[in-house]
Design a protein around this nucleic acid. Structure first.
Length: 212
DNA sequence: TGCCAGGCCCTCTTTAGGGCCTT
């Protein structure tokens, strides 16, 4: 686990962009987190990072080993989910959160924090939902496809938590820039980004005009 | 025995079905 400078309370405008690697798709079916990666953004600048492998207490499937590159051998030496998630709960304190397909990451965040009786106080926004509204011409809104579409700088690593969190943060900044460049909305609030994600696609143009 | 996620969103919709997206 790597952790940098996370002890101070975050300013209200701080956003944590996070990504989980997990044993499967559903915590309700017994799946657990095996890696968390996150970057902390302040005014569009990365000021902190968090990355931690965690041992779920059982072997992961060959599919997950191949998909993520995270092996059972790597997890055998990792800290427990409890230990890592406790540190991560400290990291996100006072921050709003962003993830690509946030409903997925939120389920695992809620599930893992419930197991250690921790909570978070931020709101969760989804880069996938915002992307579907602001770049409707994109043929796919998979994270990797959007990275290529927007020519976002990357190190070629995908399906690892910190690498995916890094490019999701870059995507989030691209979406903020798109709002300013194409819709005249400068420095949109986190609350506005959440509303954009929840606004029906059919009425998004009018919504953006009203919020200039 | 066989099945097994869940939310969003579109359409040949709303008393439904299926694709997209996340691991």
């Amino acid at each position: 686990m790597s952790l940098i400078n996370s002890k101070e309370a975050a300013p209200a405008h701080t956003v944590v962009v996070l990504d989980f690697e997990t044993t499967g798709l559903s915590p309700n079916q017994g799946d657990r987190a095996i890696e968390i990666g996150a970057v902390k953004l302040e005014n569009g600048v990365v000021v902190d990072r968090f990355q931690g492998l965690m041992n779920p207490g059982f072997r992961v499937s060959p599919f997950i080993e191949n998909y993520t590159g995270i092996s059972n051998r790597m997890l055998a030496d990792a800290a427990s989910c409890d230990e890592v998630m406790n540190e991560f709960a400290n990291f996100i304190q006072g921050c709003n959160l962003v993830a690509h397909n946030a409903s997925f990451d939120k389920r695992f965040l809620d599930g893992e924090l419930a197991l250690i009786q921790r909570e978070y106080d931020g709101d969760f926004a989804c880069s996938l939902l915002v992307s579907r509204r602001l770049t409707q011409e994109a043929s796919s809104h998979k994270l990797g496809d959007l990275v290529a579409y927007h020519q976002i700088e990357n190190d070629g690593v995908f399906h690892r938590a910190l690498a995916d969190a890094e490019v999701t943060a870059s995507l989030w900044l691209v979406l903020l820039e798109t709002l300013e460049r194409e819709h005249g909305i400068v420095n949109p609030s986190f609350e506005l980004m959440m509303k954009i994600g929840k606004t029906p696609k059919a009425s998004i143009a009018n919504f953006l005009k009203k919020n200039r």
